[in-house]
Design a protein around this nucleic acid. Structure first.
Lengths: 342, 342
DNA sequence: AAAGTCATGGCAATCGTTTGCCATCTTTTG
DNA sequence: CAAAAGATGGCAAACGATTGCCATGACTTT
């Protein structure tokens, strides 16, 4: 059992440092983690020895006795969706800075897998960030009691969240289309159980109520380029001259199908996406879209989570329970004046 | 210390099961991990109790005593590069199936960070997959002694690897261009310390030697769309009528710049990329590229790593040390006949 | 000068598993 | 039928840290 490690040398432990400096292991532990608790002189000796011996703390051991693992999980519903790249990038950055490890989990868009993973790993995690939970509110609230949680783009009472305010952006998008003369707009719906999808749809309705315009909803479609053809055909089947699409991935799929069907964008139909993912600027035509601060959402979510973990007895003084991130409309080539009536 | 867990209930341990079934903890452990070692009847009783009590093993504790963490790290040089999405997807899938956790690490393209991370985490990992190591061969070999390693697209003696045979594809790409009449081809070089970049360049030279054609090398450029303008300008500064670009990301950046400069693709210049990443099919014009089995590379790398870990005393019978994955040329809109000489 | 405070460091229990070793009981073998 | 072999389960020692509690000595306070 002792001779672990492929190189044969037994890894150096806290005890080796203790022996080397002539203090107790407990003192070493304190010197390293709780600097105020030990005399400056001894601490320095210990730190020197630790450096000398190239000591690296054994995280499992630490986790076992302290209960803290310094690992947090990031759950996404589909790692190949570019939207999550941004999230992952943001969390990655912030977590690394704080000395936490990032466990990436693909939930494959199923709530069961999500809940199961979270439950099983709850002892080996300090917390989790849910980038696209498919879980019902109640379940989510329950899990939040098991393990510290922060959601992105999902608002559940009692669970802190970073929310990208795409719904507000929908207003801007609609006004943009209005100013181009469009009066008949379709909303292309994403997955039914997606919280942001519902929020965007509600925003659409609100906008439509404020202005005089007709709107239709088509879908729902699974988010992904594969749904593009069906979605495009559905839109063409309405009288809409423009559409706002649940997300860019789907919008790009629609663009491709429209080209196949020789429908010109934006001459015959204007298309607006959401998120401004990788690719939205170089697809053809470049996509007018609601630019979301995706990376920032990841960073913010991590900050919220970490501040919850660190709080030493303090209930929740400065930490807000919800952070709303603004989006803005980026106009590119996929939107234009309404076509002259046939 | 005992009252951990936000919900207050102390988590179920192996001892609870032992008490419940009237056996020793060690027997429970064996029943759960080493089924053959314990009587079928007792094992079933234990399994039933475990299910009943909703037992979830505590991984840190397990890791501490066994030395195995059931976690493996995947190191990429830049999480926002779509090439790695594929890799991550592949590893994710395979690791989950094998019951391993995936730790995602962004090395920010620096060898030091890579080595440091690997060294620091070696006790909390069972192994690692390096998707784009920037480390020198020697260093890599040394680290492979510290912790089981598998590389992707990097060939170092003694370190198992999954290699995408893009160099072979370069031949196909060159022949494609030749058949279109191109005789003057530029290779747009990626990062200098990138192993695949060098391999691709060597392949280019080999092809050029076989056929009668002039070739130039421009670069190196950091891989990323940001390098597009500089790279495009550099290519235009040569007499090349076509270029093969280190990777699609850079190629897409070049496409954008060419459009800005009103250079028509493929009429004025043909462009070939490598990898066939997300976006290569819907950029404008769609990119002719060498389609790489990226996800598969991730899966293969995981299999190789896992088989090394599992091998119970067996030296290395069936496991190959290197797996070569074939690519194929996907012709899209960015390549065409050589322009008539001015 | 007695009594209280504080800073410092050691002891030992604990976290939840795994695993080497041994004891017992049951089979098989010669 | 005795001896060897195998199956099964328990004991207890790790694994490497953290942390509550206590002892000591120095420094304040009254």
């Amino acid at each position: 059992m002792p001779p672990r490690g492929t190189d044969g040398t037994r890894p150096v432990t806290i005890n080796d440092i203790a022996t080397a400096t002539g203090v107790a292991a407990s003192t070493v532990s304190r010197a390293l983690n709780n600097p105020g608790r030990v005399n400056a002189a001894t601490r320095e000796r210990i730190e020197a020895a630790a450096r000398e011996l190239r000591y690296v703390p054994n995280s499992p051991a630490r986790a076992l006795s302290s209960g803290r693992t310094r690992a947090i999980a990031v759950l996404v519903s589909d790692v190949t969706n570019p939207f999550y790249f941004g999230v992952i990038r943001g969390t990655q950055e912030q977590l690394k800075a704080a000395g936490y490890a990032q466990l990436l989990i693909d939930t494959e868009d199923t709530g069961e897998l999500e809940a199961e993973m979270l439950h099983k790993m709850r002892r080996s995690l300090d917390g989790a960030i849910l980038a696209a939970s498919r879980l019902p509110d109640r379940e989510l609230a329950r899990l939040a009691g098991e393990i510290p949680l922060v959601t992105i783009n999902r608002n559940v009472p009692g669970v802190p969240s970073a929310i990208i305010d795409t719904p507000a952006g929908i207003g801007q998008a609609a006004e943009h289309l209005l100013s181009l003369g469009h009066r008949n707009i379709a909303y292309v719906s994403g997955p039914q159980r997606s919280w942001p999808n519902e929020a965007r749809w509600h925003a659409m309705r609100a906008v439509a109520a404020r202005h005089r315009l007709t709107f239709t909803r088509v879908g729902p479609f699974p988010s992904g380029r594969g749904s593009g053809p069906a979605a495009a055909d559905a839109v063409l089947n309405t009288r809409a001259t423009a559409c706002i699409v649940f997300n860019d991935l789907l919008a790009i799929g629609i663009l491709q199908r429209l080209r196949e069907r020789h429908v010109r964008v934006p001459e015959d139909l204007s298309v607006v996406g959401c998120d401004d993912i990788f690719g939205a600027d170089f697809c053809h035509p470049p996509l007018t879209t609601l630019t979301a601060p995706i990376e920032q959402a990841g960073r913010v979510a991590v900050s919220m989570l970490l501040s919850r973990l660190d709080r030493t007895a303090a209930p929740s003084p400065t930490t807000r329970q919800q952070v709303m991130l603004p989006v803005h409309l980026t106009v590119r080539g996929s939107t234009g004046p309404v076509p002259a009536p046939a």
